[in-house]
Write a protein that binds this DNA or RNA. Structure first.
Lengths: 121, 121
DNA sequence: CTAAATGCAAACTATTTGCAACGAT
DNA sequence: ATCGTTGCAAATAGTTTGCATTTAG
């Protein structure tokens, strides 16, 4: 792991934020002002391919990055805010239903977050 | 519904293919050679906002469009191929665990498809 | 006649790549 | 000395927008 790789990894795992590359870049620039966006992209991809971070794609949003420890996501359909949630593990049940092995699953729950619900009133 | 909107809707719902905008565009051009890509984007977005089609985002792939009838997806981690699968409905269980209402959920199962498994041998 | 839909080109966002310079073994 | 990493700029992919023109009600 290189210096930037480590820094970026820490930024992602220290934050509860599900950061975009842009946000990681801005955060990293505080410590390393000369870093460029492409370096962040390169390192997040490297970390992702190595399975050290998780990538979260949601319709109409830039990709976000997260810890790998297993958990699900609650996503606000209005503002895109993403919250972690730990739901019952489905692995065994899914394996049974599918009838064969799989790598992993991804469960996203879409809702309207409290803030957006307020705004709608 | 305009002519193109209808055509695009039919292309999406008639296909089992989970088409990208590019594929929809190529398909539509067979019937309407003068249509441009932006029109496909505009109409797909319109249909999606109206809730008439479903958008599927997967890490590192262009968005794909699908019927709205509820079903889950099996996705090949290698080639991105997407297959429909009907799994047990989780709505009640999730509502119980979350403790509040949500809009819908999205469940994706990642695996290596038979074709890619063969290639790896 | 009016409002919405289309074609077209340009803009934009997110991301990747090529390459020269740099840094750490 | 070598090889991977970085900075930088340019390229690419996917998507959206502005505007003049066409189409449909």
């Amino acid at each position: 792991m290189t210096k930037y790789e480590k820094e970026i990894y820490n930024i992602i795992t220290d934050s509860t934020g599900h950061l975009t590359v842009e946000q990681i870049y801005l955060e990293l620039k505080k410590k390393c002002p000369k870093v460029v966006l492409a370096t962040v992209y390169n390192n997040v991809n490297k970390l992702w391919k190595a399975g050290r971070i998780r990538k979260i794609s949601v319709e109409n949003m830039p990709d976000r990055y997260d810890r790998v420890i297993k958990h699900d996501h609650l996503i606000c359909q209005k503002c895109g805010r993403l919250a972690d949630i730990s739901l019952e593990d489905l692995t065994a049940s899914l394996r049974g239903q599918i009838g064969e092995e799989f790598l992993f699953y991804d469960l996203k729950i879409f809702y309207i977050c409290p803030d957006c619900r307020k705004k709608d009133l």
